[in-house]
Amino acid sequence: METYLVFVDAVNNSNKFWSAKVEDNSLIVEWGRVGYNSQKKVHSLLSHQQAVFKFHNLVAEKNLRATEKVSHKWMANAVFQISDERYNY
């Protein structure tokens, strides 16, 4: 079980990734800027089920934070209007 998330914001020069992978009783989380050395943390758990549970929790938390961050940026920086089935701002 594995997921890989990428966040790109060209205006603010942000290009980072976050990945999580379950291997046996371990959850391996890796993050950093794309193209540079990454950081890694290995969570050693008592069972495969615990590793899967922690995986799902971390992925949900990351997705929630990303959604809040993006929604906030969109709200703060742009107002969209539909015109001829295109978005203008």
Rank of each mutant, 00 (worst) to 15 (best):
M1A: 11
T3R: 10
T3F: 15
Y4H: 12
L5F: 11
L5P: 00
L5W: 02
V6D: 03
V6C: 05
F7E: 00
F7G: 00
V8Q: 14
V8M: 13
V8L: 12
D9C: 10
A10Y: 06
A10I: 08
V11F: 13
V11E: 14
N12E: 15
N12Y: 12
N13T: 13
S14G: 00
S14V: 15
S14N: 01
N15F: 13
K16S: 06
F17S: 07
F17N: 08
W18P: 03
S19K: 07
A20G: 15
K21N: 14
V22F: 09
E23A: 12
E23Q: 14
E23H: 05
D24G: 03
N25M: 01
S26H: 07
L27F: 11
V29K: 06
V29L: 07
E30M: 11
E30S: 09
E30G: 01
W31I: 03
W31N: 05
G32Y: 02
R33Y: 06
R33D: 12
R33M: 01
V34W: 02
V34Q: 13
V34E: 14
V34G: 01
V34H: 03
V34I: 14
V34C: 04
G35A: 06
G35C: 08
Y36F: 09
S38D: 02
K40Q: 05
K41W: 03
V42F: 01
V42I: 15
H43S: 05
S44Y: 04
S44P: 00
L45W: 06
L46E: 04
L46R: 04
S47E: 07
S47I: 03
H48Y: 11
Q49G: 01
Q50E: 15
Q50H: 12
Q50P: 00
A51I: 04
A51T: 01
V52K: 07
F53V: 02
F53S: 07
K54A: 02
F55R: 01
F55A: 00
H56N: 11
N57R: 08
N57M: 08
L58K: 08
V59C: 02
A60M: 06
A60F: 07
E61S: 13
L64A: 14
R65G: 12
R65F: 09
A66M: 12
A66N: 14
T67V: 10
E68M: 09
K69F: 15
V70T: 13
S71D: 11
S71Q: 10
S71L: 10
H72F: 11
H72K: 14
K73H: 09
K73G: 07
W74G: 06
A76K: 15
A76W: 08
N77W: 02
N77E: 15
N77K: 05
A78E: 11
A78S: 11
F80R: 03
S83K: 13
D84F: 01
D84K: 01
R86W: 06
R86E: 11
R86L: 09
R86K: 15
Y87D: 02
N88H: 09
Y89W: 08
